[in-house]
């Protein structure tokens, strides 16, 4: 088993892909150094991230495969699946052979896995555009917490920057300790810890209680179906929902 180790960044994966081609090797896996468990039967090569190399791969994906393929790879990286690096490498190998038609090969395992990782991530982004709950804190900022399966704050931010453009907001991923911060003009993603969150405003309590009341009222007792509710609104999202506190 030949395994490449990268530093956990997207550029790291692309550098590893570059190295595999330039060293004429076929690594069996490309893994992140985070959470890596080494075993004695494998040989490991640590790849130093090199932006000149990753840029070449990046441009080549865009030019020789498709913009979609680039998006697929980046989303696979954001999924934080341990196999993401390996998958991206295999997908790109196919992509450079087949060009933009690679995504039609849905029954190929690599393409299939790539598509299902992407589908899961996009579904979670879509869900969260609905499940994010802001509360107004002192200073007029609207603050929310999430702990998504995929690393999606940066994909959520544009949606809320358009929609809630006149209010400053924070979407805090407490699992990864990062947040998207918006100041009514632009948004950035940065490291963030929950220590210095101001208290909620007075108004906040009123609206959240009204919302809970509304939520409770809307269910029709004779149609009660908790199983369906859990299927559509999985438990893991409940902690962050105002109506479920």
């Amino acid at each position: 088993m030949l395994t490449y180790i990268y530093d956990g960044s997207f550029e790291g994966i692309l550098t590893a892909v570059f190295e595999a081609f330039s060293r004429k090797q076929v690594p069996d896996a490309i893994l992140s150094e985070h959470g890596l468990q080494q075993d004695i039967t494998s040989s490991y090569i640590f790849i130093d991230t090199d932006c000149a190399k990753s840029d070449r791969v990046y441009n080549s994906i865009w030019r020789n495969i498709s913009e979609d393929a680039l998006k697929n790879c980046y989303h696979a990286f954001l999924s934080e699946d341990p196999q993401a690096g390996t998958l991206i490498y295999r997908y790109l190998k196919l992509g450079w052979r087949m060009g933009s038609r690679v995504d039609l090969h849905l029954s190929d395992n690599t393409v299939f896995n790539m598509m299902s990782i992407n589908r899961k991530l996009e579904f979670e982004v879509h869900r969260l555009t609905g499940f994010v709950r802001f509360r107004q804190v002192e200073g007029g900022i609207f603050y929310s917490t999430i702990s998504p399966d995929n690393n999606v704050v940066e994909l959520l931010a544009p949606h809320f920057a358009e929609r809630l453009s006149d209010q400053p907001w924070i979407i805090h991923d407490i699992k990864r300790e990062i947040a998207a911060l918006y100041n009514t003009k632009t948004w950035i993603v940065s490291e963030f810890s929950a220590d210095d969150i101001p208290l909620s405003t007075e108004d906040e309590k009123l609206y959240s209680v009204l919302w809970k009341q509304f939520f409770k009222t809307l269910s029709i007792p004779s149609r009660e179906n908790p199983k369906l509710q859990r299927q559509l609104l999985p438990r893991r999202y409940w902690d962050h929902l105002t109506e479920k506190w």
Binding site: F131, S219, I220, R223, E224, Q229, L232, L241
Partner: peptide, 9 residues
């Protein structure tokens, strides 16, 4: 969809 009520709607 922003949330789902107890009847799954």
């Amino acid at each position: 969809c922003h949330t789902f009520s107890g009847d799954g709607r």
